[in-house]
């Protein structure tokens, strides 16, 4: 599948109608999601035929992108039941099958090495401090091969240090810098929209 085609399919994914501020439910737009997954497959072969987990899957954008790029299985995990219902509807709409689990990443009920690749767009940790690092710790436990994740560029040095020193990543590399366009989703947003610089990371675990 071509990048443009993937992006166009992801345009059909329905985003949160009432995002929950405490969970930092910002949508992963089709532009970023398609580039992230396309790069994971075309540069590293981490999607096609693999078992992929989408942690904090929300409405399912990244997991659906993985399935459109021929992931063998995708498991989406989210703490929020409403998000999972939406993810389920989106999967039906795009005619893909994703496994969905309601669980907290702080207490992830996980065994074994089944998942190859984790893809995620974690909270940036602005509303709930440390949430981004909790996601990363969980992801590096779950992934057998690689983790793809988005983090604020301003946290780059910290992310790299903690991933390798504390969370057991064998490598941590910024693949590219992206502009994350956040439309004003919440009442406390004063501007109509705001651009945030984010890094697309690839961590390896083996």
């Amino acid at each position: 599948m071509k990048l443009k085609q993937l992006e166009s399919y992801l345009g059909d994914v329905v985003q949160f109608a009432n995002p929950k501020v405490e969970l930092e439910q910002y949508p992963t737009g089709p532009h970023i999601a398609s580039r992230m997954l396309f790069m994971a497959e075309s540069s590293y072969g981490d999607i096609d035929g693999k078992v992929v987990a989408d942690l904090g899957c929300g409405c399912g954008t990244l997991g659906i992108a993985a399935l459109l790029l021929d992931a063998a299985q995708v498991v989406g995990v989210d703490v929020d039941g409403d998000a999972l219902l939406l993810a389920h509807e989106n999967c039906n709409e795009l005619e893909v099958e994703m496994e969905l689990i309601q669980a907290s990443l702080t207490h992830l009920p996980w065994r074994g090495p089944i998942v190859d690749t984790v893809v995620m767009n974690p909270p940036f940790g602005t509303r709930c401090k440390g949430a981004d690092m909790e996601f990363l710790a969980a992801a590096l436990k779950v992934a057998g091969t690689a983790v793809y994740s988005l983090h604020k560029t301003s946290t780059r040095a910290h992310i790299k240090r903690v991933a390798v020193r504390d969370f057991g990543a064998t490598s941590a590399e910024v693949l590219c810098e992206l502009r994350y366009n956040l439309p004003a989703s919440y009442k406390f947003h004063k501007q109509r929209e705001v651009d945030i610089a984010v890094d697309l990371w690839r961590f390896t675990t083996s």
């Binding site: 299985q73 496994e99 969905l100 689990i101 009920p109 996980w110 074994g112 089944i114 998942v115």
Partner: peptide
């Protein structure tokens, strides 16, 4: 939920 998922879930 399929059994592949059951295989990776545990009670924590």
């Amino acid at each position: 939920m399929r059994l592949i998922t059951h295989n990776m879930l545990s009670c924590n």
